[in-house]
């Protein structure tokens, strides 16, 4: 009896110190996340008027949402474009980083160097630097000139035209070729995903591959029968990471529209409504896709 009570005391003490350790997070979460979060949700249903003294907020129902969907000339288009781009690029990044990480997990000379190069964009192409090349109007002119002069010369364009004349093609192929043309974008945004896959690959014991190869399994088969299931849980991690990363990129058109509305037009209410629409769309998308992926994921333990 006494012993049990003492244990409860220790457990209680540990629970209290646990809460002390995570206190910064709880406070920060409540003050800087929950409050602004609810605030911005409320603001999206309100008319926010700024004045010298402060700001006044009056409830006006769905007017802001109505404005965003029906009056704002760009938001709908940007939202659909960004979502399509997100799906395509996330898929491309996942596939790309999966194969690259398999290659980088093999033993060869200069492996460390190659890994370092693939990881370099995580550091260099982050934040402002990434958005810079798209936002700059001069760069845009430059890009157009380059595209105009090199049209039809690139290999992928040639292959594409061959396929088109053979009547193979369609929307899916167009997207595939778009991704191939933008392989640079894919390569520079998959550094983190490659590392995550690598960390998973390193945990697979080599005895599994040995056993499989003794049983007559080829490399290709063991890739799909061993490697793929063993790191399938990381596909989920990478999927979520990539989608989230995509939302936070500085060249994201929807986000820049939101910031333009907020900072240049000073319409906090419209901006909140836009941000909420985008957030809900992304959350629903992440939720549904993760649910589907998690059904397929194989857990070894």
């Amino acid at each position: 009896m006494k012993k049990a009570k003492k244990l409860a005391g220790l457990e209680k003490r540990k629970a209290i110190s646990g809460y002390i350790f995570i206190a910064p997070f709880i406070i920060g979460f409540l003050v800087f996340m929950v409050k602004p979060f609810i605030d911005s949700l409320m603001m999206s249903f309100q008319l926010v008027e700024l004045s010298g003294e402060g700001y006044t907020r009056t409830f006006n129902g769905f007017t802001n949402y109505d404005y965003v969907f029906n009056v704002d000339s760009q938001f709908n288009r940007l939202l659909t474009e960004e979502m399509i781009r997100m799906v395509i690029y996330t898929l491309a990044i996942i596939v790309f980083s999966f194969f690259i990480s398999i290659i980088l997990n093999q033993k060869f000379h200069g492996r460390g160097l190659v890994r370092a190069v693939f990881f370099l964009p995580v550091i260099l192409s982050s934040g402002v630097i990434l958005g810079l090349e798209d936002n700059n109007s001069y760069m845009q002119v430059m890009k157009d000139t380059v595209e105009a002069t090199t049209q039809g010369i690139s290999v992928s364009a040639a292959v594409e035209s061959i396929l088109k004349t053979m009547d193979i093609g369609g929307a899916v192929f167009d997207k595939v070729f778009e991704v191939i043309d933008n392989i640079y974008d894919v390569a520079i945004s998959s550094g983190m995903q490659i590392i995550i896959f690598l960390s998973g690959l390193q945990t697979i014991s080599s005895s599994m591959y040995e056993a499989a190869s003794i049983d007559g399994c080829t490399k290709w088969e063991s890739l799909w029968k061993i490697t793929f299931p063993m790191i399938s849980s990381l596909f989920l991690v990478n999927w979520i990471y990539t989608v989230v990363d995509f939302c936070m990129r500085s060249d994201n058109q929807v986000i820049s529209r939101v910031q333009f509305t907020m900072i240049s037009q000073l319409r906090y209410d419209y901006a909140s409504a836009m941000a909420w629409i985008y957030f809900l769309v992304v959350v629903v998308f992440v939720g549904i896709t993760s649910l589907i992926i998690s059904k397929v994921v194989y857990y070894n333990d």
Binding site: M33, F37, M43, V244, M248, V258, Q259, Y268, A271
Partner: peptide, 24 residues
């Protein structure tokens, strides 16, 4: 619950709450 909140923080783009943080 709190750890789920950490996950939520990872997933929420900071831009969503930027408008109200700004006024805050």
């Amino acid at each position: 619950f709190w750890f789920a909140m950490v996950m939520l923080v990872i997933v929420i783009p900071p831009q969503t709450i930027s408008s109200s943080l700004y006024l805050h």
